[in-house]
Amino acid sequence: MKTFYGTELSNPLMLGTAQYPSPAILEQAFRDSGAGVATVSLRRESGAGQTFWQMIRDLDVRVLPNTAGCHTVKEAVTTAQMAREVFDTRWIKLELIGHTDSLQPDVFQLVEAARILTEDGFQVFPYTTDDLIVGERLLEAGCEVLMPWGAPIGSGRGLNNEYALRAMRAEFPDVPLVIDAGIGLPSHAAHAMELGYDAVLLNTAVARAGDPVQMACAMMRAVEAGQMAHQADPIEARDMAEPSTPVIGKAFLS
């Protein structure tokens, strides 16, 4: 199993912490599913932050702070610096939003911010598109993980461009790759893992489900099944049938 900046994860599910019906349900979703990485963010202190932080600490998970909502390099870098101090981790999920409706990453600023942060000692998890050249540039900038989108954040559409994601997996065989965003169903998450991805990061699909705890558990089973299937070397699809029961020795009865 590949490591994420030297850290081996016990399972391939990274789970967001936003949008749950209540803190108790959020906590239960993590405990029951066993997700080992929690994404978190920073917002202006209003009094609620300390309680939330205590709960996350009690969950005993790896924390992956994000730079969600940042639109400029400067904003993202400052946010990352603040996150490093507050959460006491070098990990940063680098988001640089370029488009309001699709929340598509601004990959030009993403590469620049990734370089600045890497030079400053951060371990960057860039939320990127499925563009191979951008992936190459991010690796050159010092990233050791890539997180291409499956579909726009919160859309639940699954893997919009399987071809591109397959190409990315083939292009970067040794780089830990995470499908970040767009997952709606466990089948999407399993699909990502079957393609050979190393983890799946999702939030809305669980938090907005009618029963987030059950959905978190379903996602965990899906990523584990997909990972196991990939390791088991699946068969190729074919156009025509091929009998699975031996033909030779069949009794002559007609």
Binding site: G16, T17, A18, Q19, Y20, L26, T39, V40, S41, L42, R43, R44, E45, S46, A48, G49, Q50, F52, W53, I56, P65, N66, A68, M82, V86, F87, I153, N203, T204
Partner: peptide
């Protein structure tokens, strides 16, 4: 001046 603290995120 900005003062920020931990918050839920995706």
């Amino acid at each position: 001046v900005e003062v920020v603290s931990p918050m839920q995120g995706g």
